[in-house]
């Protein structure tokens, strides 16, 4: 693997537009970095802030939320709710020290495969610049780093 930091992004897509845009990017062979892993939801309105926090807690370095353009939602207006939740979530995460740049909301219609690929590309580079988030994944540790051993020396040092 290349030596530089390879971020892992989780992308939430909406079944009717941004997932189809990802498929379209595929059929059109538009290349984008493999750092992102997409999850299909029925609509951007289905996105629960808990999913974003779960992804970050599990070790993702950034989360990309995509949905239909306002006014073009297959379920008429549910992407507005996604927008409201995103704006509130970003504030809470910022207060918890997570750079707002790690969470992004992007509108992409079913025809905008190229745009989605470009957005993914830009976000991967942005998160790469921010460096790893690597939230400690295993909680058995008592608050120090993941490995318990390392914490022992700290006590005695």
């Amino acid at each position: 693997m290349s030596e530089q930091f390879e971020p892992i992004l989780v992308g939430f897509t909406c079944n009717w537009c941004s997932y189809r845009a990802a498929d379209l990017a595929g059929t059109a062979r538009v290349k984008y970095p493999p750092n992102i892993r997409l999850i299909r939801l029925m609509c951007s309105g289905r996105l629960d802030p808990a999913f974003v926090m779960k992804a970050l807690a599990e070790g993702a370095d950034g989360v990309l939320i995509t949905g239909c353009h306002p006014g073009e939602c297959h379920y008429l207006e549910q992407n507005y709710k996604a927008l409201r939740r995103f704006l509130l979530l970003r504030r809470t995460l910022e207060q918890m020290g997570i750079e707002p740049g790690r969470i992004k909301l992007v509108w992409a219609s079913a025809a905008e495969g190229v745009k989605l690929a470009h957005e993914i590309n830009t976000m991967v580079e942005e998160v790469r610049a921010m460096g790893p988030l690597n939230w400690p994944k295993r909680w058995e540790s008592n608050g120090f780093h993941a490995t318990v051993k390392e914490q022992e020396q700290e006590v005695t040092a």
Partner: peptide, 28 residues
């Protein structure tokens, strides 16, 4: 569409095919 599933503060609404457990598990 699942918007209400995500919005329910009490977690009282569950959605088939895209339930919270499924998505959490998929993330893990």
């Amino acid at each position: 569409c699942g918007t209400c599933v995500a919005a329910c503060p009490a977690g009282a609404i569950s959605g088939t095919c895209f339930s919270n457990e499924q998505i959490f598990a998929q993330i893990e």
